[in-house]
C-alpha cells in the first residue's frame, strides 16, 4: 500500500482485496504443511489437539466471512460485495460436497479396513476445508487477474 498518499475507496478496496488473495495463498500453503505434519505426527496430547482446533476455526472463519473483520465497516461492505459473497458460497458448496463424499468413502472403507476416529475426522475436515480453500483461492485469483 502506498504510504503518504491518499487512496480513493476503489483503490483501497483493490489493495485490500489483493492482500486477501495473498493471505488466501498463505493459508493454502499452511494447509499443505498441516497435511504433511499430520502424516508424520498425529496430534495426540491436549495442547496439539487444541492447536488443531484453533487452526480449523481460523480456516472456517476465513472461508465463512472472508476475513477483514477489523476493517472499517464501509470498506468491509465493499470488500464483501456480491462477487466476494458468491465466491465464498461456491467455495463452501465445494467444501460441503467434499466433506460428505469423504465421510461416505470412509464409511465404506471401514468395512474393509477399520479407520480410527481421529484419522476419519482429519480426512473429513481436510477434504471439506481443503477443497473449499482451493476453490476460494482459484476464484479470487482468477477475478484478481481480470476475470
Amino acid at each position: 500500500m502506498a504510504s503518504g498518499t491518499t487512496l480513493d475507496p476503489a483503490e483501497r478496496v483493490d489493495s485490500c482485496s489483493r492482500q486477501r488473495t495473498v493471505l488466501l495463498w498463505l493459508e493454502l500453503a499452511a494447509f499443505a504443511i498441516w497435511q504433511v505434519l499430520f502424516v508424520f505426527a498425529h496430534p495426540t496430547d491436549w495442547s496439539q489437539r487444541v492447536m488443531t482446533l484453533i487452526w480449523v476455526a481460523v480456516m472456517l472463519l476465513f472461508i465463512g466471512t472472508g476475513g477483514g473483520l477489523m476493517m472499517r465497516r464501509d470498506l468491509r461492505r465493499v470488500m464483501n460485495d456480491e462477487l466476494a459473497v458468491a465466491h465464498r458460497h461456491e467455495a463452501q458448496r465445494w467444501g460441503f460436497w467434499a466433506a460428505m463424499l469423504a465421510g461416505a468413502g470412509l464409511y465404506g472403507l471401514d468395512v474393509f479396513r477399520p479407520v480410527s476416529l481421529p484419522i476419519a475426522l482429519h480426512v473429513v475436515l481436510s477434504a471439506g476445508l481443503g477443497l473449499a480453500l482451493i476453490r476460494y483461492v482459484w476464484l479470487e485469483t482468477r477475478a484478481e487477474r481480470g476475470g
Binding site: 476503489a10 478496496v13 483493490d14 465493499v78 456480491e82 462477487l83 477475478a143 476475470g147
Partner: peptide, 19 residues
C-alpha cells in the same frame, strides 16, 4: 465501482461475462 459501491474486481468480472 465507487458509484455502484462494489469492488473494481466485480465490475471487471461482470464486463468480462464471468460473473
Amino acid at each position: 465501482a465507487n458509484l455502484a459501491r462494489v469492488s473494481r474486481k466485480t465490475i471487471n468480472t461482470v464486463e468480462n461475462g464471468v460473473f
